[in-house]
């Protein structure tokens, strides 16, 4: 796989301000963060604390007002639209609260989609997607469309999709918020297993206390600043 980077994510004095009429909302205000390869980090904080904004910055979806974000030691604020698209396809895997599968595609096709953007040959896409769906326990559901799957199954497809291009980091924004207690726990255990056995670096935003137990580190965010860090 080439070079191994010690830190998958690094932020330096990261800030994002939004102008709301005459006053400025400081969604993020000077966040310094380092996430090691293979770590499982949870970001906790009430709504409006800046969790999602932080995710959008790390994921290359939004540009900071100030400061820097490094993914595998590259400053992504310097990338143009084309390079950001490549970064999102190859370096970042996203898992959403609402699963966000493409409704017209089957589970297999959903998992193959990021590999299409990454230019992976068709045979390899099919092989890898099947392997990943088996890994998340959906080997017998590969030709089902999202509306034929339960919430937990859809989230498993989303996890398989996030892993499709072996990203440097998987960002999971409240992945259990739309699932019942039991299913949520299954998803957390699956993420933990992938982290332990496959060395996938995972950052989750959550209020879910079950998530805390499995994390290597917990970062508490409040008013756009890091309040404290627990190991």
């Amino acid at each position: 796989m080439g070079v191994r980077y010690e830190y998958t994510v690094e932020t330096e004095d990261l800030a994002k301000y939004y102008k709301m009429g005459t006053f400025t909302v400081k969604a993020l205000d000077g966040v310094n963060l380092k996430i090691r390869r293979g770590e499982y980090v949870s970001i906790m904080g009430p709504s409006g604390s800046g969790k999602t904004t932080l995710f959008n910055m790390i994921g290359g979806l939004d540009r900071p007002t100030r400061g820097k974000v490094y993914i595998d030691e590259v400053d992504i604020s310097k990338l143009d639209a084309y390079e950001l698209a490549w970064l999102r396809a190859r370096k970042i895997g996203y898992i959403f609260q609402t699963f966000n599968l493409i409704p017209v595609l089957t589970a297999l096709e959903n998992v193959m989609l990021p590999m299409i953007f990454a230019g992976v040959p068709r045979e390899e896409r099919i092989r890898k997607a099947k392997y990943l769906l088996e890994l998340v326990g959906l080997g017998d559901r590969i030709n089902h469309k999202p509306n034929e799957l339960s919430g937990g199954q859809q989230q498993r497809v989303a996890i398989a999709r996030a892993l499709a291009n072996d990203p440097a980091i998987v960002l999971a924004d409240e992945p259990t918020a739309n699932l019942d207690l039991h299913t949520g726990l299954d998803i957390i255990n699956l993420l933990r297993k992938l982290n332990r056995e496959k060395g996938v670096t995972i950052v989750t935003a959550t209020h879910d206390l079950k998530m805390i137990d499995v994390s290597d580190r917990i970062i508490y965010l409040r008013d756009g600043k890091i309040e404290r860090v627990e190991s």
Partner: peptide, 29 residues
């Protein structure tokens, strides 16, 4: 092109895939 320490490659979306998804979108609605 190289940025810092890793290489940025191609982003692709073949026409055949786009046509397939477009037709699925029409069938869905």
């Amino acid at each position: 092109m190289s940025k810092g320490t890793w290489e940025i490659g191609e982003v692709s979306f073949p026409l055949s895939e786009a046509i397939k998804i477009s037709i699925e979108n029409i069938k869905k609605r």
